[in-house]
Amino acid sequence: MAYAYLFKYIIIGDTGVGKSCLLLQFTDKRFQPVHDLTIGVEFGARMITIDGKQIKLQIWDTAGQESFRSITRSYYRGAAGALLVYDITRRDTFNHLTTWLEDARQHSNSNMVIMLIGNKSDLESRREVKKDEGEAFAREHGLIFMETSAKTASNVEEAFINTAREIYEKIQEGVFDINNEANGIKIGPQHAATNASHSGGHGGQQAGGGCC
């Protein structure tokens, strides 16, 4: 299927916060109450539309356990967006955000868009982390923030799509070098064809070169 851009995402955060469930809800529109442990990384994809343009999202869902960190780290490079997820019913998953953020910043390209997600918002009675706290953390570290529920699908679309919109805007502003695939962005075949003079593969095209 033709697309204008391809964005690569990574989903990170402690084990059991609902990373795989968020992905499944986004790609398959279903919820699996018991989701087996993710081993290493798993892959998912979906097409979305932004500004009338087809954008393909390719998403790496990573294992949360520390032991897999040496494997999952290599997926930061080449990601344009990251969803950093914690569980609003488990304070410790919120406390670990700083470590995750340091890891992400150290191993990713500096323009990577990071969306902070407080998941399991349907479990209000078991809430341990206030929404304000998530907002404050996000503000302090320059992240976008949302609370989601992979179970009820609340805000799940929005989380993935708002991240894409932010990346898209950065492209428009010329912040991202879209010809460097290490940034996690690829121009679609359809798009490349309309810019035939620039389709020389690597280099050539100006960053965000007013192609839209």
């Binding site: 084990t15 018991v34 989701h35 087996d36």
Partner: peptide, 14 residues
């Protein structure tokens, strides 16, 4: 804690 979180998540599917 890790083990206790993981065991109930082992899917019947497997």
């Amino acid at each position: 804690r890790q083990i206790a979180i993981d065991i109930p998540r082992m899917t019947p599917e497997s």
